[in-house]
Simulated scan of single mutants.
Amino acid sequence: MTTNSSLISIQRSTDTKKKPPQDQLGFGIYYTDHMFVMDYSVGQGWHDPRIIPYQPLVLDPAAKVFHYGQTIFEGLKAYKTADDRIQLFRPRDNFQRMNRSNDRMSVPELDIDMAMAALEQLIAVDREWIPSLEGTSLYIRPFVIATQPTLGVAPSEHYQFIIIMSPVGAYYPEGINPVKIHVESDYVRAVPGGSGEAKTAGNYASALKSQQAAKEQGYTQVLWLDGKQHKYIEEVGSMNVFFKIGGTVYTPALTGSILHGITRDSVIRLLKHWGIPVEERMLAIDELYEAGRNGTLEEAFGTGTAAVISPIGEMNWNGEKLIIGEGKTGQLSKSVYDTLTGIQTGAVADPFGWTQQVEVIGK
């Protein structure tokens, strides 16, 4: 624990919830008994860090988060190892990225040491909620909302930083089995100079219409093309995306409209560690389809905290279907998934120093 943990007050719940069966968790349906809250006000900074029973928020109807969307969030996970330790995966990277999002949305910077202390303390309090069944974890959602009750269009002078946690299973019903992807040709998600590389709510709200239409056509997610030319591949749903073509793995370059994925970075580093060629560059959708037609497109998969690795078995672009790897999970996708989840759960050695153990005093 960091020394900042001594600043955090703890009010324990007197009404603990019944834990759901671990084979029926779904994603983001159930929540632990406690939450972390910290306030911000101009002149005082971040203050009053506290762990309290999980409960609804009370906000003024004029709170700026409702009107101008000044909010950001993160997503990470805690895992239980076979020998009953608790591990986090690159948690400081999540809070560093959170501060990049804060900067883009004019939200005050968080002290990362304090955020880490809060996270560790909250996990220690609710450690019994961490599931142990294979494929499960404790999903952690830190977020910041603007709470000042004024309607002027300007950055808020008051905020809350909150962390909630949820025991989860697979993000997609398909699990590690391939998903079907619809390529969006009408709407756009983001453009360079916008807020696309920030984890802010509006980016996800604007994606819902396309996602809903894709699901109505039998597709799990949407592949976004660039906002200027509708030509270059960007992200798939809320994930970064990778393609193995002719033995080389390609992923879209970070051009300012794509999220700096922590799982993305982990995959790149893992592939390079294995000696597999990786290129970060702009990749056109017609180039990808040509690789599919001539047989050089071997695998495709999305990456993100929620799903870790999600293989792609089929794509549909302007009515032309492209089957990837006979619609089956590729060998590389499976190896990356097994290795990353193995590192996260302690079953595989971590040569990168990515995992961090949560110390539970007096267990």
Rank of each mutant, 00 (worst) to 15 (best):
G202W: 05
E197H: 11
K209Q: 12
G194R: 02
Y159F: 15
P155K: 08
K180I: 01
V144N: 04
Y171A: 04
P131M: 02
D126A: 05
V179K: 07
S137L: 09
T136G: 05
R127G: 00
I164K: 07
E109H: 13
E216A: 14
P192C: 03
E197T: 09
A213T: 06
T136W: 04
G194M: 03
Q211F: 02
F161H: 13
A115H: 03
Y172H: 05
V188N: 09
G194D: 05
T136R: 08
D111T: 07
T150P: 00
A190I: 02
Y159D: 06
R189L: 12
K215A: 14
Q160T: 08
V183S: 05
P142M: 07
Q160L: 05
A124W: 00
E174A: 14
A198T: 06
A190Q: 04
D111R: 08
Q217C: 06
G169K: 07
T200P: 04
E216C: 03
Y159K: 11
T136S: 13
W129Y: 02
I181L: 11
P178F: 07
E128Q: 11
A213E: 15
G218I: 09
Y204A: 12
Q160E: 13
H182G: 00
T220Q: 14
V168I: 13
E197P: 01
S156D: 09
P173H: 05
Q217D: 13
L119Y: 06
Q148H: 12
Q217P: 04
A124K: 00
K209E: 05
D126E: 02
A207P: 07
A146P: 06
H158R: 15
L110M: 13
H158L: 09
T220H: 14
I112T: 12
T150G: 03
H182K: 15
I130Y: 06
Q121G: 02
A118C: 03
I181N: 04
Y187E: 12
Q121V: 01
I176R: 02
L133S: 13
N203Q: 11
E120D: 13
K215S: 12
V183A: 07
P192Y: 03
E128Y: 06
D186F: 07
I112K: 09
R127D: 01
W129I: 03
Q160H: 12
S195Y: 13
E134K: 13
A207C: 15
M114E: 10
Y171H: 09
A154L: 12
Y187I: 05
S156F: 11
A117N: 01
T220S: 14
Q212G: 00
I164H: 10
G152V: 11
P142K: 07
T136L: 05
S132A: 14
A170C: 02
P173A: 01
Q121Y: 00
S206L: 15
E184I: 02
A124N: 00
P178Y: 10
S137R: 09
S137H: 11
S156V: 07
V144C: 10
A214H: 06
L151Q: 06
L122M: 04
A146T: 03
G218S: 11
E157M: 12
P155N: 07
G175H: 10
